[in-house]
Design a protein around this nucleic acid. Structure first.
Lengths: 330, 330
DNA sequence: CTGTTAGCGCATTCAA
DNA sequence: TTGAATGCGCTAACAG
């Protein structure tokens, strides 16, 4: 591999001069610059970013830890991150935990070893051990989707979005509303449940335990959850007339089951989700959902991290706006 | 930042010894090892991968260039790649071109600058300029989804999958089949069209130009394409009874339009796609599609690249099997 | 405007 | 079993 030394010799200048033309820094005579550029062109020389990083202490790499890349949420966030980071010449080192929480910790260490300039953590929990590790590695870090005290973050307004969605359903005359949530260690998504419960309470509407189920983040579990809800509530004869699922995928799974059972959406049961997945509008019926602007979240997180790394002004916590998308599934 | 030198001093040994315990190489007395490990633990020392790379000429990073992360195809491939690479301690540097072809070239250079050990290119074209650049940078590289002579690759059997799908439709009595393709520079997807045309020809079935349209890789353009096909063919009174779209998303867009027009699927028009997207089975009606096993493609590509990098046996070209998934949309 | 020098953090001879 | 010395490829004073 050809190095800066080779270029220097071939162009009959010193390595410093080559470095100068490489980085456009300091004075270089037109003559010298030309010679150097010519040699670089001829040899197809590409400087080693590693050697450079070793000197400058900047890698221009940011690590992105995520639970899975196979959701629209994650991929949109990553797209947003990429847009902003690439503007400044940062590249993304991907750390996919595949929903394995221990790996979240491992990757934090690993990214430190890689000397990334910063880390974006698309987290699924807010356990104390996580905060501990974050402090230990001492690398600029921003969380997306979850929030911990003392850590920069970009989050969604899950709570109010959920209240508003619930309110919308109530306005439409629904009094028995079912809810499919997820594991409670996900605090952010937990706020969707809280918002739902509060809004119901605010309207003096009771929520039966029979209407509350949990799924994981796939379509199939939406299917399973609504099945349980129906069987739970059939005995009490209090069958819900509406359903809120914390993700579009859960909602899709639920709708699929309902259709198979001959239960019409929205006539027999209104259904709404969260996430504004691309597919939502093409479903039959089109799905009511909440747009959390994931791509924008990614962009904001990138900007926030960049500002921090460059010690510019940066906000500690950013809470993004949401947008209710009402469609005919309710 | 604490370095190997600090550790050496604190443990009262030389840097070489620290290096030895770090890499488990050479002889180290139990006593010395203990002291070093203790200090490492206390100081939370993490060795710099950059300095290490500079010496060893190995970065343990592979670059992945892709057109967009926001498709199931890409994200599944990346998941597959991640699985295999992480087993060997390789990390993934993500290079998202956002469908910008010039960036494909730029990233090839950039990854060279980063001294990645290898590159996975999820390509959308096979232009000569691309091959030129690949040869120029001279970094181990494997393509996924497309194939060029002299470049390692993992591809799908687009051609036969398409023929088989077409054949299935013909068996079901369809004689007028429409086809939504994409830009022809995508050779791989182009084979799906070729397979379709060949199978039709093999059955002496004519294909009207009016039934051939193109979309891009989103749902909306499926919508638009089928609209055109219908208006094209209405005049000739040869309205197709079936439709093949080269991706599930195109098919979904088409179905959405058909439903709005009161055209029933599959009674009035059978519809099939490619890609086996997760959503396909939950559609109404469930979509017939072709599973190309993208995650496996990612795994295979990773294995292939790793073998090449370690100069083990590796196959030049891998063609993956497909699986036809027949559902009630046809 | 340019070259000399030093050193980033580490692995790897070579001697001891 | 250990340490001293060297250099990976580059940037950044500093002196000229």
């Amino acid at each position: 591999m050809v190095t800066i030394k080779d270029i220097a010799e071939m162009a009959k200048v010193s390595r410093s001069t080559v470095s100068r033309v490489l980085n456009n820094s300091g004075y270089v005579s037109e003559d010298a610059r030309m010679r150097v550029e010519k040699v670089i062109e001829e040899t197809k020389y590409t400087p080693s970013q590693h050697a450079k990083s070793l000197r400058t202490k900047k890698t221009k790499i940011v690590g992105v830890i995520l639970p899975t890349i196979q959701t629209e949420t994650s991929s949109k966030i990553v797209t947003g991150l990429g847009k902003e980071f690439s503007k400044l010449g940062y590249e993304i080192l991907l750390a996919n935990t595949n929903l394995n929480r221990e790996k979240e910790m491992e990757y934090l260490d690993l990214l430190k070893v890689r000397r990334v300039d910063g880390i974006v953590l698309i987290a699924t929990n807010t356990e104390p051990k996580l905060l501990e590790k974050i402090n230990e590695i001492n690398v600029p870090l921003v969380m997306v989707g979850q929030s911990i005290d003392g850590v920069m973050s970009v989050t969604y307004d899950d709570y109010h979005a959920s209240r508003e969605l619930t309110s919308l359903l109530i306005d439409k005359g629904h009094e028995r509303i079912a809810f499919i949530g997820v594991d409670e260690t996900d605090q952010a998504v937990g706020m969707r449940k809280k918002g739902f419960l509060h809004e119901m309470a605010a309207h003096q509407l009771e929520v039966s335990e029979a209407w509350l189920e949990k799924g994981i983040f796939d379509i199939e579990s939406g299917h399973v959850a609504i099945e349980k809800i129906l069987s739970n509530s059939r005995s009490s004869n209090k069958i819900p007339t509406a359903l809120i699922a914390v993700t579009d995928r859960l909602a899709i799974g639920a709708i699929s089951y309902l259709k198979k059972q001959g239960i019409h959406v929205p006539e027999d049961m209104a259904v709404a989700g969260f996430g504004a997945s691309e597919i939502a509008q093409y479903l039959d019926p089109p799905l009511t959902t909440v747009d959390f602007q994931n791509e924008k979240a990614g962009e904001q997180a990138a900007i926030q991290l960049i500002n921090y790394m460059h010690s510019k002004n940066h906000s500690e916590k950013i809470v993004l706006d949401y947008r209710l998308i009402e469609r005919t599934s309710i």
